[in-house]
Design a protein around this nucleic acid. Structure first.
Lengths: 153, 153
DNA sequence: TTGTTTCCCATGCTGTCCCATGTTATCCCA
DNA sequence: TGGGATAACATGGGACAGCATGGGAAACAA
C-alpha cells in the first residue's frame, strides 16, 4: 500500500529516488517497475504498480467497445503511461515531458494514496493539500466507516 | 481493542514505547505495524491497525476514481499516514513532522478509543478533557436513554 | 562525432537494530 | 496476608545497514 508523502531531489538528468516504501509495494510484480502518466486533471503525475494498471484495464473492458468515453480514457491513460524501471540504487529517470507536465524543478513529492500515488511539485502540492484538508473537514460526515463485519448495526 | 490512556516518554530520537496493550491489538496483522496520521481537526495524532486502514481503503474504493470527494479524502488521510514498525522492545519512531503537529516534547499520551486511538501532548489532552467535561455538564440533558422497546408507555 | 541515456561506483546521513539497565507489576509461596 | 522472586515493561545509548544523492564512464542513437 502506498502511504505518506516523501520529498526527494530531482537531479539534472531527471533522476529521482523512489521512496523505499513505494519500491517495496512493487517488489514482487513480474516487472519491477512503476507506471506513471500525466494527470488530465492538473499539473501533476499519477502512478501505481502493475495491480493498478490491471484494475484500470478491467474497468475499461467493461465499457462498450465503441463508447467514445472509453476511447478517450484509453488514449489518455494508457497512451501516455510510461513504465519506469529502477536503477541499482532505486531511482527512476523521469522523461522530460512528464517533468514539464508536473512543473518539477529540483524537488518531487511522492504522495501515497493507498492503491496508487501521485508525483507533485512540492509548492503546488502545498496549495492543493490545504484545499483538500478544508474540503475534508467540511465534509467529514460523508466519510463514515462501514459497519464492521459481524458488528451490530 | 484499543483501551485506556497511557503516558510514555519520547526520547531525543523521537522514539516512544507503544503501550503493551496496544501492541497486542496488532499482533496478528500481516505487517505488525501501527498507522498514524495528523488529525485534520486539531493538534494531535490519530492511529490504528491494519484493520482500520483497510476499512478506509474499502470505503474509498467504492467511490468513483475521479470523484472530487474521494481525491480530497485520499490526500488527507493516506497522504499523511505513516506505517510505523516496532523495534525489538516495542517502540516506534515518530517522524519529526508528526511530533511537531502534535506538539510533543518529552511525553506522549496514548488514548484508546476502541477501533482507533489518538496520541496527544499530555498538557493539551488535559485541556481538552476539561473542555469535554464542561461541555458534557452543560449538555447533560441531551444525553437521554432511548425508549425501551416493548416497554409500557 | 556529438549528444543522450544507462550503468556503476563513492559518500554522507538518517533511520533501524541490538544490547544493557532500572522500574513496575504479577505471581508464587510461606 | 505479606514478602520475595520473577517476568514483563519502559528507557538509554551506541553500532550498523539501508537510503538518498552526486559524479563519471561506457553504451547507444542521431
Amino acid at each position: 500500500m502506498f502511504l505518506s508523502t516523501t520529498i526527494n531531489g530531482v537531479d539534472a538528468k531527471g533522476r529521482v529516488s523512489v521512496p523505499a516504501g513505494f519500491r517495496a509495494v512493487v517488489k514482487n510484480d513480474p516487472e519491477e517497475k512503476i507506471y506513471v502518466w500525466p494527470s488530465f486533471e492538473g499539473g501533476y503525475l499519477e502512478g501505481g504498480g502493475q495491480a493498478l494498471l490491471d484494475r484500470y484495464l478491467n474497468l475499461l473492458e467493461e465499457m462498450d467497445p465503441y463508447d467514445d468515453a472509453r476511447a478517450a480514457f484509453e488514449q489518455t491513460i494508457f497512451g501516455d503511461t510510461r513504465g519506469l524501471a529502477f536503477d541499482g540504487t532505486g531511482r527512476v529517470t523521469l522523461p522530460k515531458d512528464l517533468i514539464e507536465h508536473a512543473g518539477l524543478d529540483s524537488k518531487a513529492a511522492f504522495v501515497g494514496l493507498g492503491s496508487r500515488f501521485e508525483i507533485w511539485n512540492p509548492d503546488r502540492l502545498a496549495e492543493r493539500k490545504a484545499n483538500a484538508r478544508d474540503f475534508a473537514r467540511e465534509n467529514k460526515k460523508s466519510l463514515r466507516l462501514p459497519p464492521r463485519t459481524g458488528g451490530g448495526a
